[in-house]
Design a protein around this nucleic acid. Structure first.
Lengths: 156, 156
DNA sequence: CGCTAAAATGATACAGTATATCATTGCCAG
DNA sequence: CTGGCAATGATATACTGTATCATTTTAGCG
């Protein structure tokens, strides 16, 4: 597990590299996402930021922060859960991962999220299914409702 | 394309077979889903039922109807879109399909939905990914944001 | 430096999705 | 025919997300 402030620095560097700005507020939201390591709703994050920094953000503001982070590939929106999660590849040097199709495993119980890479052959088959059915894939992101190891153990 | 009233009869028979009841209201909701052939939100369906039958259902009621239909495998909830769609396998004689992992292709533009079967080898790989990451799959349902052929043609 | 345009943020209101809770009705087994 | 359970009604409210317009901050430029 990487140091969070280090990750934030890297994120800022990534933004600088193509002329966008990781402002204080944006950084706070990202920091909260990184610290929790879990998926959080926009409203969860409003609470987190308030808690950690005493900064009360309006919903509109929070959604703007999140849109920015997602557009910069610093975070992902999980549509299945209506929550957001930090990208697990921020500190990778290149953008080689950003062009892969991510597969998200979302723990229904504790909102822990693991972002794993899908085998490219598997993606090929999925998209093949899609085009055979006459559809075009828009946002190739696979999300699955799961139970993480810890929560499965507790439940048993 | 199968006749809708025939599908409804089959659905009722399926319910009877294990002692649950496809009441008038439940049947109306299912009929609306079948007629449209598209994904509809709970509130869309309230309008549809009102339109077709003059029956005004409260949100609470509609969500109960939908929970029932989903639990009977007569409909599916599409979490990506927060919408509901009729199961495309109601009229299959056995429940052989219900144990497969469905893959839903959702048209972002017109909400048309196709439910296709995923190759079992592909499922094996997906679930393999999941268990290697220490997770247990809860609701194995793959949903993908797409554009259907018609809408892609219009957009061009 | 001071101006200006664009980017970022603030503030208010509201639309859309979903659930909690308690009351009432209808059905059928004994 | 009645007691209990399944189904539905009714009201309120919580959660998720967006529209709109105002204000502040920043970067670039003469």
């Amino acid at each position: 597990m990487q140091d969070i402030s280090e990750t934030l620095q890297q994120a800022e560097a990534n933004c600088d590299a193509h002329g966008s700005r990781l402002t204080t507020k944006r950084k706070r939201v990202l920091a909260c996402l990184l610290e929790s390591g879990r998926a959080q709703s926009a409203y969860d994050l409003i609470d987190s930021v308030k808690q950690s920094y005493g900064d009360h953000m309006q919903p509109t503001t929070m959604y703007r922060m999140l849109d920015f982070l997602v557009s910069e590939n610093l975070a992902h929106k999980l549509h299945l859960a209506n929550k957001y999660v930090a990208c697990s590849h921020i500190t990778c040097d290149t953008c080689e991962h950003s062009h892969e199709v991510p597969q998200f495993l979302i723990c229904n119980a504790c909102n822990r999220v693991d972002e794993i890479r899908i085998d490219s052959e598997l993606i090929r088959q999925l998209t093949n299914n899609v085009s055979q059915a006459g559809y075009t894939l828009m946002s190739p992101q696979v999300e699955l409702h799961c139970l993480c190891g810890d929560c499965a153990a507790k439940a048993a």
